[in-house]
Design a protein around this nucleic acid. Structure first.
Length: 192
DNA sequence: TTCGAGATCGGA
DNA sequence: CCGATCTCGAAT
């Protein structure tokens, strides 16, 4: 079951500093239709640092990043995987949170079918895996999370600060010193 | 980033 | 021996 509509995050949530949003998204839920789970790993990207696609300005590829907060940014990586991000900060500023892993909650059979594997920890434990499990693709680029087919839903209770760990981002070659990756501590569904 | 193939490791 | 773990290349 998809969470209640009034729990859906809108532009207000995303119109804040991207690092703050990345931390606060841990514990929220990402759904596409009846399929989704709890966000357990995120990374922040900002136009001011060279690991961000927006670093070189609004090029054709990065154009979406400069749109209004709460818009989906989906791009194709390694010619194989779609990676799902949420645009943050005011329109005109290039910033986004990459969703890197989910703990599967709903539609697990569907996820297993789409992924072609059984183990729960293999379904959404990486940015390319979760888009496959949730059937998120390039067609969802620029969709509006507040009302489009893909939605993010508010976390239930407050998470203790210490339950969220920050560390350097993975899979990048520049600005590797920034601790802009956020994980739910001790959760077994984060990427490797 | 992800996957599978092939190599290697290590317990029994 | 068998599974678990690693390393490497390929997919655009």
């Amino acid at each position: 079951m998809t969470p209640a509509p009034d729990e859906r995050l809108d532009a207000t949530f995303f119109d804040r500093p991207v690092v703050e949003v990345a931390r606060d998204l841990v514990g929220c839920s990402l759904y596409h239709g009846g399929v989704g789970g709890i966000v357990v790993e995120t990374e922040a990207y900002h136009e001011s640092e060279p690991a961000c696609h927006a670093y070189s300005g609004p090029t054709p590829r990065a154009r979406t990043l400069f749109r209004e907060p709460g818009v989906a940014y989906v791009y194709f990586s390694y010619g194989v995987h779609s990676l799902f991000n949420v645009v943050c900060e005011p329109a005109g500023t290039g910033a986004a949170v990459l969703i890197r892993a989910l703990e599967p909650v709903a539609g697990v059979r569907t996820m297993r079918r789409r992924r072609g594997r059984d183990r729960l920890t293999d379904l959404c434990s990486g940015p390319g895996k979760l888009t496959q499990a949730l059937a998120i693709g390039l067609t969802h680029n620029e969709s509006t999370l507040a009302r489009g087919p893909i939605g993010i839903y508010r976390a239930h209770g407050d998470l203790e600060d210490r339950a969220i760990e920050s560390s350097p981002r993975v899979g990048i070659t520049r600005a590797t010193e920034l601790p802009w990756r956020f994980c739910l501590a001790g959760n077994g569904f984060v990427s490797r």
